[in-house]
Amino acid sequence: MATDVHRSVTDVHGSVTDTAAGKDPGSAPSGAAVQVAGLVRAFGDRAVIDDLQLTVQPGEFVALLGRSGCGKSTLLRVLAGLDREIEGEVLVPRRKAVAFQAPRLMPWKRVWRNVLLGLPGRPEREAAVTALDEVGLGHRADAWPKTLSGGEAQRASLARALVREPDLLLLDEPFGALDALTRIKAQRLVAELWRERGCAVLLVTHDVEEALLLADRALVMEGGRIAYETTVDLPRPRDIADPRFGALRARLLDRLGVEGSTDDGAGGTDPAEAEAEATEDRSAAAA
C-alpha cells in the first residue's frame, strides 16, 4: 500500500509541501496515512476548525462523531482537497477518494461511466466493471442511475471511490439516507471492503453504533477540535449486545451530551440520530 508519499493541501499562503518516500515528512510521524497539525478553517470571523490535530495510521478505520455544525464535514472536505482556504499543515496520501451521503451520479451517464468519472487518461470499461463487481453491482453496469435503488446508487458511489485505488477513503455520512435494512448491508459491505483493501478510512457519522461497529478508533469533535477519542478494542464482527459495546456506546453518548445514557448503553437518543432515523423512515416509505 503506497502510503509513503504524501502531499499537503495548499493553505491560504499558497504553500505546498511534497514529501517523497523515505524522507522526513515534517512533523508527520513516519508512515502516517494522515497528519494534520494546527489546522484552521474560518468562514468570516467564525473558525469552524480551530487548531485541530489529527493522525490516522495506514490501514486504520477511524470514525468521527460530533454535533451538527461542529466541522466534521468541513474537515473531510479539507482532507479530500476540496477546501483549500486553510491555515496549518495537512499531509494526506496522493491517492485518496471520497464518497458522500448523496451518491452524486450523473443521470445522463450509464453507471459504469459514472464510476470512471473524473479519472485521468482514458480508463477502460473493464476497470469500472471490476469495481462494480467488488460492491456487488456488476450486473447493473449498463443501467441508468435513475433506475437504481438508494442502496444500489450508494454502492455505485463506493465503486467510483474504489476504482481510484485509494490509500485513504473518506466517507461523509454515506449511509444516512438509506433505510435501516439497507444501511446494515452497506455497513457490512464497507467493513468487508476495508478488510480486503487495507486502506485507511475516515468515516464521518452521526450514528454512535455505526461508529463502534466499524471503527478501530472513535473521535468526537467539539469546538473545531478533536475533543475526545477512544479505542474500540472489541473483536470483529461486533455484537451490540456485548456489555463492553454498551459501555463504549454510553460513554460516547455522554460525551455527545445525550442525557440519560447508562453503562449498558440504554437511555436517551442523540437528536442527530433521531433525525437520521426519521430520514430512514421517509426513505423506506418512499420505496
Rank of each mutant, 00 (worst) to 15 (best):
Q187R: 13
A211E: 10
I226P: 05
E210F: 01
R188P: 13
R183M: 09
Q187G: 15
L219T: 03
V220N: 03
W194G: 04
L148Q: 03
A177G: 02
D167S: 10
E222S: 08
L189V: 13
G176H: 04
I226V: 07
L212G: 07
A227P: 07
S157E: 05
E222A: 07
L202C: 06
A159H: 08
H139Q: 15
K185I: 13
V204C: 09
T231V: 14
T231G: 10
K185L: 15
L170P: 12
V190W: 09
A186V: 12
D179W: 02
V190R: 07
T230M: 14
R164K: 15
L158K: 00
T205G: 09
H139P: 11
G151T: 02
L212D: 09
E192W: 05
A141C: 10
A141F: 01
L132V: 04
P145W: 01
D142P: 09
F175E: 06
E229V: 05
R225W: 04
R155T: 07
P166L: 05
L219N: 05
L214M: 15
L169D: 13
T231I: 12
H139F: 14
A218M: 11
H206G: 02
L178K: 01
L212K: 10
Q154W: 01
Q187K: 08
A200S: 04
H206N: 04
R164T: 13
K146H: 15
E173T: 08
D133N: 14
A153T: 06
S157N: 11
R225I: 13
D167L: 00
D167I: 00
A180R: 06
V201I: 09
G138S: 06
Q154R: 00
E210V: 00
L169Y: 08
R140M: 14
L213D: 10
D167T: 00
L181N: 11
W144E: 11
P166Q: 09
H139R: 14
K185G: 15
R225P: 13
E209I: 00
E209L: 00
A186M: 14
W194M: 06
V204F: 04
L132E: 03
T231W: 04
L162N: 03
R140E: 15
D133S: 11
L170G: 01
V163L: 11
Q154N: 09
A186Y: 08
G151M: 02
L214H: 15
W144A: 14
Q187A: 12
V208G: 13
E209C: 07
A153F: 03
A141N: 06
